[in-house]
Computed example of a mutant assay.
Amino acid sequence: MTRARPLAAALSAALLMLGATACGSGDDDAPKNVSAAAASLGTLTPGVIKVAVQPYAPYTSVQGGRIVGLDGDILTYAAKKLGLQVKPQVTDFAGMLAGVQSRRVDVTIGGVAWSADRQKQGLFTDPPYYSPPAMAVRNGKTYKTVGDLKGLNLGTVEGYVWVKSIQAVPGAELHAYPDANGVFDDLGAGRVDVGFLDPLIIIAAQKQRPELKISTQYLTPPTAVEVKAKPAYAYFQPYQTGFYLPKKATKLEKALSAQIDAMYANGELAKLVRKYGGDPGQFLKPDAAVATARRGVDRPQDWTPPSIAR
């Protein structure tokens, strides 16, 4: 996601990934009879795509050795088309990035936000979906714009980028919690007016904790003028996710991007977004800023972001 972690956490995660790799990187169970096309993709083990993930349902979790969740289902579909066997390695968010940047894994997934800095150290696929600015709101309340948030009690998780956005809202009081459960608990108790979290997390909580009496709403993104006046408001805009790969994994990135683009066209992505309670109109239609952010950076000047029909 768009989460940020301090250096200590990053170092801890890097050590965790090193340990996981040392203990679990043997290729004794590598698939036999790997096709030439799959072998040509240049994965660390031919026919296998090693994936770093953290438990972050309903985006990614590992059950019975398989990755499930929205990102997990997307990768599994694409990997099957490419003749690759998916093998997960569990770590935390900083470890996901470190595993890719040191090429101990082939890819990491789980709502990783594209950024100009991250792409300098790795490769991003085309966006498998775009994450809209979602709000957990108590039933009966409606908030549409940043202006509606003024003077409210706003919650999110410590280290998430929404901390900066909330701090920029006039008169708003930030409530930061160790995890999403704290946000939901205080929202249900009325101590928080709005919680900023990844959308599928909110949708899942609605189903699993009906006693909270909350709903999911989407913030109208701030305008370019508003963001220029308050740069932290940029985090209230939709962000584009991507599967993140090592710099040298150019063939694999292109192959995965091609599969992702095909999933927009054949309806598979819309089906998967709906499976987890998401709205394809929110998740699969890019904001205008997506193209301009990547054109001339890690995409050609004429690149058009994938989208379902508008």
Rank of each mutant, 00 (worst) to 15 (best):
A270P: 02
F184C: 12
Y235C: 03
K228F: 11
P238E: 07
Q206S: 04
P231D: 09
L200R: 10
K251V: 00
G188V: 02
A224P: 06
A204E: 07
G242H: 00
M263H: 05
G281E: 13
K271E: 10
N266W: 13
A289H: 10
T250H: 13
T223E: 08
F196V: 00
L269A: 07
A291S: 09
Y235D: 11
A255K: 07
K275L: 12
R274H: 07
P221Q: 06
N181Q: 11
K213G: 09
M263D: 10
A234S: 14
V225C: 02
E211Q: 13
F243M: 09
G188N: 14
K213C: 00
K251A: 14
K228A: 15
T220A: 15
Y218P: 14
A291M: 12
Y239G: 14
D185I: 03
G281R: 10
E226G: 12
Q208I: 14
K275T: 14
P221C: 08
K230E: 14
Q259V: 00
G267F: 02
K285Q: 11
A229W: 06
Q259P: 13
A204H: 02
A258W: 05
K207G: 05
A288R: 02
Y233T: 03
L197F: 03
V273Y: 11
S257A: 02
D193G: 07
